[in-house]
Design a protein around this nucleic acid. Structure first.
Lengths: 338, 338
DNA sequence: ATGAAAGCGCTAACAT
DNA sequence: ATGTTAGCGCTTTCAT
């Protein structure tokens, strides 16, 4: 079922059918309706590949999301989509698994969709110069910076929080409540990603408060699953019941940790406080409500799009935006038990 | 940057480049490496549209997911992907927003990717005959049936739980624990989807137990958000503090309801029991752990793929598979207070 | 207002 | 082992 079939069926030329399909003016109403009818009857749907192949690059941007099952990204995606719409741009969403390579996914998308720009959401923090080149069009990293790569600041944009500073802030919050036995729950201290950066903030906060680092309290899970976070917390509590606070680098990990605390009889925040970073929807519904540093998800999406648009249209050069979290006071932060 | 540029750069024909790119054997190692090098240097990436346009229909199936932000779908998607891989099929994933029309998304996908078959995940329950025709290739509805449409059973397959029966089961569970003031928390009793079906099961369970339906206890939220579920539960508890149990049609709603219960001082399950359907990961980490009827997510995905494969390969006709949930005993189900 | 024909970038015969 | 060439389905001049 191609455009030819439709044309033949109606006894017109393919170009006429094409005109109808693309709402071009120069078609007689009669022919138009005849074609439309045939399209409907024949269940004809244009082949997108053929269309993309020939069409002039539209105002389209790509959004490559790594690990879209993370609810944290949902509001960001929605915002970017809305802003796109408003600006008369089309957005094509491409989701890839957590482990996948977003650069090649992005590069592929660029070629096949003739994109004007690209936004990476949830990407790595260590792009090489060559990887940057491979994209070939303006791009912005949303929620990730390039701390561990060697990309030139001028060839890309980024919009995110300052993971180091926020890690510091979260830890400081606990310290200010008298905690000194503060465990940190993270993926890995060397993940070249948020864990590593937020952990660095954690360390610095301890240093600044004169609290020595206790290796036992660095709880690595190796992955971001809740079950790993749960198990790791359980083990830590067993080994070190003197822990009075946990800083989880992500809300989801904090939720798992709270369950572990509960199951060994630690009340929250009576026996142990919990603070996290992210601010996903569900953390407002935990019992007790999670105290967390909320990332401005809508603003992240908004800034990412605005930045990309500026670069695409030449209004402004690449820029690197750092946003701040806001503290959502829940019920999991309390004074250290003595 | 096209295949021609690469060919020219290397001083070979485009077909040679194409051969290298597609790992065809008949290329001298020397030429191959020269081409590969050029590809790398030039940041050449094949245009997918052109490729799709010309390639013989591969063994590809499409997966159209509506509302992929729902964590419930994650394991299903993963399973389908795995099974695809094993069977030598390629899967193309297409995500659309909750409100979008999966039929047209599916139809578009079929044309542009030359699919052999299609799986719909999280789709509507009311496809018309014409919509079925529009797809034009074998398709299976996963998690949804077509209770409210007029599709002929023989033109499509479906794999899901029996929403009615499971709604009945959940309600019965509460009744068996002595509850009679059982609220049901759902989207809408007329959503032509899971809410309506599970609600029908709820009603029948009440009828069979001789418990009159109490309209006050039918809590509609109009959407599937947690905030709506929270607010609706709060209001219901205020109006009807005699409620001793809540059946939520989805885990996420149950979690929000538990928060509402907590906030008005109702202990769970002491003052009020909660039972849901779904079995998402996070419901294992609520405090107390949610008692829920777990959908066999992996099996759903597995059966969906197997069914589709059978139809594609002509091994078996379209079929309609109903799977059963399994009770995950949490800590939210208790005897009715007297 | 409509038709004919030239490509878009690629793969797969078919030659050589 | 490599080059030549015919389309894949579509949009878009350029004619008519």
């Amino acid at each position: 079922m191609t455009i030819k079939d439709v044309a033949a069926y109606c006894g017109v030329a393919v170009s006429t059918v094409s005109r109808v399909l693309n709402n071009h003016p120069d078609v007689s109403p009669e022919t138009r309706s005849r074609v439309l009818e045939a399209v409907d009857k024949l269940h004809y749907i244009p082949n997108n590949s053929a269309r993309d192949l020939v069409m002039a690059p539209a105002d389209t941007i790509g959004l490559v999301v790594r690990g879209a099952e993370n609810p944290f990204y949902t509001p960001i995606i929605r915002t970017i989509e809305e802003r796109c719409e408003e600006a008369g741009y089309t957005m094509v969403l491409h989701q890839i698994p957590v482990g996948a390579d977003e650069i090649s996914a992005g590069a592929t998308l660029v070629r096949s969709k003739r994109l004007k720009g690209l936004i990476f959401l949830g990407g790595r923090f260590d792009y090489s110069r060559a990887e940057g080149d491979a994209i070939g069009i303006p791009f912005v990293c949303c929620t990730n910076t390039n701390q561990f790569g060697d990309l030139d600041k001028s060839v890309y944009s980024s919009v995110s929080i300052d993971d180091y500073a926020e890690g510091y802030k979260a830890t400081k919050l606990l310290i200010d409540h008298g905690h000194t036995k503060i465990a940190v729950l993270l993926d890995s201290v060397r993940d070249h990603s948020i864990s590593e950066l937020r952990y660095a903030g954690y360390r610095q906060a301890l240093v600044d408060a004169g609290i020595p680092l206790d290796e036992d309290l660095v709880l690595e899970t190796v992955d971001f699953t809740m079950s790993a976070a749960y198990a790791r917390t359980l083990a830590a509590l067993e080994a070190r019941p003197d822990i009075t606070a946990i800083f989880a680098v992500a809300d989801s990990m904090a939720i798992a940790a709270m369950k572990a605390l509960h199951n060994v009889g630690f009340s929250v925040p009576g026996a142990c406080s919990v603070v996290a970073i992210d601010g996903i929807e569900i953390s407002q519904y935990t019992i007790p409500t999670l105290t967390t540093l909320v990332q401005p998800q809508e603003t992240l999406g908004e800034e990412a799009f605005k930045t990309l648009l500026d670069v695409i249209e030449g209004t402004a050069p690449n820029r690197h935006v750092r946003l701040e979290t806001s503290l959502r006071e829940g019920e999991t932060l309390g004074k250290a038990r003595s």
